[in-house]
């Protein structure tokens, strides 16, 4: 029964740029979906299923948005970089870019027909000026049958680690300000260099996911 509920293996890719990666992952996924079924015969009590694999991390989106800068109302344009004092352009996109977006893998170890342990991980992500730590994902799913042809399902999943942290830069302001640790994005704004640090991006993944669902067949 659990397989019916969770046989929704999918692969979502964040962008078309990762189409090749997505294709590779699809192949791996297909193998993983098939092989557990072979490894753990249906008559065995425990089976492992790959139930989801995706590059849909909200923190990846947050990290990518750092490259977009901010909207400047007075100029009706986005600020996505600045010039150094000698005119050399600096683009945020060079700092907040990655070749491998945070990818999560969710698996299910099934114990009987109505209970399973959810477990998995995410790979994390790294750009020049930020990191998303790898995470560990653990939980369970339990099912009940309040009536014939109906399923009440409870899913609980917790996530450990996986924080997004923006890194600092070393800005050299020469005679007027010396070398200071600054928020890379805000180094050329009017904020005093030391005050830019309070605007460093930090985000945590959704730590606890709980869902209760009910389905009935007619």
């Amino acid at each position: 029964m659990l397989l019916e509920v969770y046989a929704q293996t999918e692969l979502r890719s964040r962008s078309q740029q990762h189409g090749g990666i997505a294709a590779c992952l699809s192949l791996v996924l297909l193998l993983l979906v098939v092989s557990p079924s072979l490894a753990f015969a249906q008559d065995q009590a425990v089976a492992i299923h790959l139930i989801d694999m995706a590059q849909d991390s909200e923190l990846s989106i947050t990290a990518a948005s750092l490259a977009d800068g901010w909207y400047d109302e007075s100029e009706d344009s986005r600020v996505s970089g600045y010039e150094l004092s000698d005119g050399t352009p600096v683009k945020f996109a060079d700092w907040y870019h990655t070749d491998w977006p945070d990818t999560r893998v969710d698996l299910l170890t099934q114990f009987g027909d109505d209970f399973g342990l959810l477990w998995g991980f995410s790979t994390g992500e790294r750009g020049e000026k930020y990191t998303i730590d790898p995470s560990l994902r653990v939980g369970f799913v339990a099912q009940a049958h309040p009536a014939a042809n109906s399923i009440l399902s409870l899913t609980v999943r917790a996530v450990a680690w996986g924080n997004l942290n923006e890194q600092t830069c070393e800005g050299d302001y020469g005679e007027i300000g010396g070398v200071q640790t600054v928020n890379c994005r805000l180094a050329a704004t009017f904020l005093p260099p030391e005050e830019t640090l309070q605007y460093l991006a930090h985000a945590e993944p959704n730590r606890l996911h709980i869902s209760l669902s009910y389905s009935a067949s007619f």
């Binding site: 010039e83 150094l84 004092s85 005119g87 600096v90 050299d172 302001y173 020469g174 600054v182 009017f190």
Partner: peptide, 11 residues
């Protein structure tokens, strides 16, 4: 003003 506020280098 924008250049006066900007660093010489950043890394």
């Amino acid at each position: 003003l924008s250049r006066a506020l900007a660093p010489l280098t950043i890394r």
